[in-house]
């Protein structure tokens, strides 16, 4: 039935390329929507986790721990097949997927925001207070803008993870790239072609995000005042003769 041997059937891929690209568009849209929701939720959780009220702090930490500990696949089937069926809630796959992704993502982002907020020098808050700024103004006009700079790489990484995680929504039949690849692979008996194309599209998407983050980082660093941001990715050389000149200890990576 299947053709064997090394034959990448480009024709069948090209014939279905518009569908694949459209599906990838949905993957990106789902990732962006989940990221947007998670940013809002994560910011609230992070502010709560750094607040003065103990109960709120405990709740926010619980949120972070629980949702960073749960696997997306487990959560999505629990929400979609467990909870929704039991509560008899009729929710369409795509919004269910976005909400679940956002829920998980908010915990990771909250942790990124929390550590970023705490990295900002205390003196900045004190200076704001000394100038008579309100608590809100200190947070939003003084602390957050400085914290954002140090968070950019981590947020970028998180975005690539969310984009990749959209593929898991295939299990609840969200017609994103992976789901579309599965159905095309089954229709045409060409799994190798379609899963390869899916992989390539994801690699392209992730590379674009990585590149954009690097550009954003560089721009922000240029505008930074007096070393607020340590140049990320530059290893500290403690020994003068540590490595030979032609031997830079780095790979193209920012983590």
């Amino acid at each position: 039935m299947r053709e064997k041997g090394f034959a990448f059937d480009l024709g069948v891929v090209l014939a279905h390329l518009p569908e694949m690209l459209g599906a990838f568009g949905l993957s990106v849209a789902v990732a962006v929507a989940a990221m947007a929701l998670a940013t809002a939720a994560g910011l609230l959780v992070a502010v709560g986790a750094t607040s003065r009220w103990r109960v709120l702090v405990a709740l926010c930490f619980a949120h972070i721990q629980v949702f960073r500990g749960v696997a997306l696949y487990v959560l999505i089937i629990w929400v979609y097949f467990g909870l929704a069926i039991t509560l008899q809630v009729n929710i369409a796959p795509t919004p269910a997927g976005i909400l679940t992704l956002a829920l998980l993502d908010s915990a990771y982002l909250a942790e990124i925001f929390r550590t970023g907020l705490q990295k900002v020098d205390r003196g900045q808050r004190e200076a704001g207070a000394a100038l008579g700024l309100s608590d809100g103004a200190i947070l939003w006009r003084v602390v957050v803008p400085q914290a954002v700079r140090s968070m950019i790489p981590a947020i970028g990484n998180q975005f690539t993870d969310v984009l990749k995680d959209t593929s898991i929504l295939a299990v609840i039949a969200v017609p994103e790239l992976m789901y579309t690849s599965q159905s095309l692979a089954q229709q045409t008996y060409r799994p190798f072609e379609f899963y390869t194309v899916a992989g390539v599209l994801f690699v392209i998407g992730v590379s674009v995000i990585t590149y954009a983050v690097r550009v954003a980082e560089r721009r922000v660093r240029r505008g930074a005042v007096r070393g607020v941001v340590a140049p990320a990715g530059v290893p500290m050389v403690t020994s003068v003769s540590g490595r030979e000149p032609g031997e830079p200890p780095r790979m193209e990576d920012e983590r």
Partner: peptide, 20 residues
């Protein structure tokens, strides 16, 4: 690194199991 980090795990599973 770019390849392995860019491809989602689920895609790899299908690629290895059904594609290869």
């Amino acid at each position: 690194l770019a390849l392995m980090r860019g491809v989602p795990l689920l895609v790899f599973m299908y690629w290895v199991y059904y594609g290869l």
